[in-house]
Design a binder for these strands. Sequence first.
DNA 1: GTCTATATTAAGATAGAC
DNA 2: GTCTATCTTAATATAGAC
Lengths: 183, 183
Amino acid sequence: MSKAKYIPCLLSLFRQHGYDGATLAKISEATGLGKASLYHHFPNGKDEMVNTILNSLQVFMEDQILATLAGEGEPLAKFERMCDRLSYVYENGDQPCLFAILLMGSARDTFHDQVKRIFQAWIDAMVGVFQNAGLDQELAKRRAEDAAIAIQGALILTQGLNDPRIFQRVINELPQKLCSALF
Amino acid sequence: MSKAKYIPCLLSLFRQHGYDGATLAKISEATGLGKASLYHHFPNGKDEMVNTILNSLQVFMEDQILATLAGEGEPLAKFERMCDRLSYVYENGDQPCLFAILLMGSARDTFHDQVKRIFQAWIDAMVGVFQNAGLDQELAKRRAEDAAIAIQGALILTQGLNDPRIFQRVINELPQKLCSALF
DNA sequence: GTCTATATTAAGATAGAC
DNA sequence: GTCTATCTTAATATAGAC
C-alpha cells in the first residue's frame, strides 16, 4: 500500500486542523501532491484518508499497547509501557487525540463506530489486566475507564491551557495510580 | 440583548455539529430565521454567535460555580454543587463540551484565548478551595487540574462509547474523591 | 426585524493529457 | 502516478424590498 507513505503527514494535518479544517488545498500543499493525485491514492477523498489513518492507529494500538497488556509481565510494567507508547503517539502532549477530534466534529457520524471499537478494545485490554490482578469485573471496568478518562481529559486540558506539562504529569503518575488500586 | 433568545438553540447546534458542521443553513432551519435575519442579529456571522455563547457560558460558570467555590461552606458541599451544575450543563452526559469542540476544530485559533481563560478561572477557583482546606499550592493545583481532567475525559469517553453512565459515575464520585485528598 | 434574491468564494471532486 | 483545467455544489455573506 503506497497509502502508508502519507499517513504521518495526513495524521498531522487532521490533528492540527480537524476534519473540516483539513481542506484538500492544505492536504495538497502538505503532501506535495495535486488534488487529482490525492484522489488517485484515496479515491473516496478525505473519508478514505481518515479511514486509512484510523486503521493505522488501530494496528499501532494492537501491536504496541494491547499486545503488551494481554501478554506476560507485572501490571505496573504493562501500564508503564502503555503510557510510554501513548506519550509517543501524542508527542508528549503536543498533539491532540484524533479520536476526540473526530468525535467532536461534523464527521462524528461517519467515524463514530470505528472510534468506539478502538476505545472499547483498549478499555477491555486494561480490564483484563485488572481482572488478572484479582479485581472483580465491575471494579476492573471502572479502573480501566478511569485510565482512559485521565488520558483523554489530560489531552483536552493540555490543549485548552496550552501546557503539555499537564499531560506529562498525568502520564507519569498514571501507572502507579492504576496499580495502587490493586492493593 | 435580543441575542440571548437564540443562545440555547445555537449552543445545541454547535455542540451537535461542531463549528464547521453547524452551517448557516442548519442554523437558519433550527432558529426559524432566514440567513439575512441571522446576520441582522449577529453581524459577524458564526464567530459572533459562538462568542455570544461563550460569554453566556462564562457568566453561567461565574454565577453558578465559581461563586459557590469562592463562597462560604464546606469543600464537599461546594464540589457537590459544582458537579450538580455541570450535570445540568452537560445534560447528564448527553451533550459534549463546547470548549472541547472549539479546541478540536478549525476554530481553535479564534476561540482558544477565551476558552483558556474560562478553564483557568475554573481551575483557579478549585485551587482556592483546596488551599483554604490546607493543601499547599502545588498539591492544590494538581488536584484542581485532576478534577477538570476527570470531567473533560468523562465527556470524551461518554461520547466515544455512547454511554452517559460513564459521565454520571464520574460526576457522582468526584466530590468525595476530591475531598478525600484533603485528609 | 424579516424576507427573497443574489453575490462571492472555496470546498470537494473529476476529466483527460502526459 | 502526476498534472492542469474544470465542474459542481455548498458555504459565507450582502443588497435591498417590505
